[in-house]
Design a protein around this nucleic acid. Structure first.
Lengths: 201, 201
DNA sequence: GCGTAGTTTAACCGTGTGGTTAATGTGCAA
DNA sequence: TTGCACATTAACCACACGGTTAAACTACGC
């Protein structure tokens, strides 16, 4: 074929779609091949096995996740600027990728080894800038003390968790996408204040 | 056999163990049968299909989750008592069930329909008590306004999320269980203050 | 036009898996 | 002791699935 996009790329895109929707274990190589408009054998020609393809997709999915998050947290912005920016950026990012969080969680639950493989290449999270900012504020008496890891975990939890339980949310709130979006919009407004306020002395 | 526990119970226990560890799709009925010390056919004798068994396990897993949470939230305790109690209870609950959150998320991601089935039997979450308590405080000027759903979501996020990403946590923090436990202990201490503080006017 | 290396396909293959079957075991009521 | 319903098993089965193979198709340098 060699049509428009290269077959290899098309297979990757298709794999992404199918793996994220069905979960790796329930995804069928045939369905991926179909989605890519390609013979199933071609998929093995390029990637060797379903397993290898799955790892590639997982690496990409995670690669999207963390860097942009820690880029903001590690930047020179002040805390008061950082928190809203992280909230806004991350909520937008996740809003446009409904299947991503559930997929990542499922995958890391069954294949914790894969996380290790991904994190082996990048270093550990660079939190020194943030640490210093917190310490300064604490010293200045404008903020309660909190361990950096706890701070980051709180921030990430508040941002990501609703997407992780989105399927349940939509049923509990009796909604389809629209009301969920509204729910997230409200979080965009309120979360920064919530987090910053929580640490006032 | 009819040994000690009834076979049916033993199969359920085994299924719970295997499904939670491997994820439903990757779990093998043979492995469940082995774990239960039982012939594979017996499992079909009692439950008809792997699918049916999986639904039963999911229903139980979720059944453990929500009721005890909303029981506390709906109780007559004051907000200042409720929040710490929820944090404490829920963190303990999850600490002793490491695979539960990941399993539930995976499962609802691939089978959103199952959630609907479970929530059809119980009603929607009873949040009226909590709503009133928030309104009273807001009226008294001792609390910022916040929508109940947002309040609950924030609370649950902060409590559950670390367990959901536990496999990644343990790699990022370069730890096995002990340091994760310490991390959670610190949350038990700090979360109630964090949440309550966040809503001061 | 021809050779060659890289793509792509149709047709297979082995097997792991969920599920079935028919026979045997077990306890208990009459 | 027999009859009967429930419980349990060993041996099968069909087939969906991941993976293979050998041949054909393309493009491109010479």
């Amino acid at each position: 074929m060699t049509d428009e996009k290269e077959s290899r790329e098309r297979i990757l895109d298709a794999a992404h779609t199918i793996f994220l929707r069905r979960g790796t274990a329930s995804a069928r190589t045939q369905e991926i091949a179909d989605e890519a408009g390609v013979n199933k054998a071609l998929l093995h020609y390029y990637f060797g096995s379903k397993e290898a393809l799955a790892e590639e997709i997982f690496r990409r999915a995670i690669g999207d996740f963390f860097p942009r998050f820690f880029a903001i947290l590690g930047s020179g912005l002040s805390l008061d600027e950082k928190v809203p920016l992280v909230v806004e950026t991350y909520l937008d990012f996740l809003s446009s990728r409904p299947y991503l969080p559930g997929y990542v969680v499922s995958e890391m639950h069954v294949h914790p080894d894969r996380i290790r493989a991904v994190f082996a290449s990048r270093g550990p999270a660079p939190l020194d800038v943030l640490t210093r900012q917190i310490e300064e504020r604490v010293a200045a008496g404008t903020m309660r003390h909190i361990a950096v890891e706890q701070f980051v975990m709180n921030l990430v939890s508040l941002i990501v968790y609703p997407f992780v339980v989105r399927p349940a949310m939509e049923i509990v709130l009796q909604v389809d996408g629209d009301r969920f979006d509204a729910f997230i919009s409200e979080r965009r407004r309120t979360l920064p204040g919530f987090v910053l306020n929580a640490l006032r002395p």
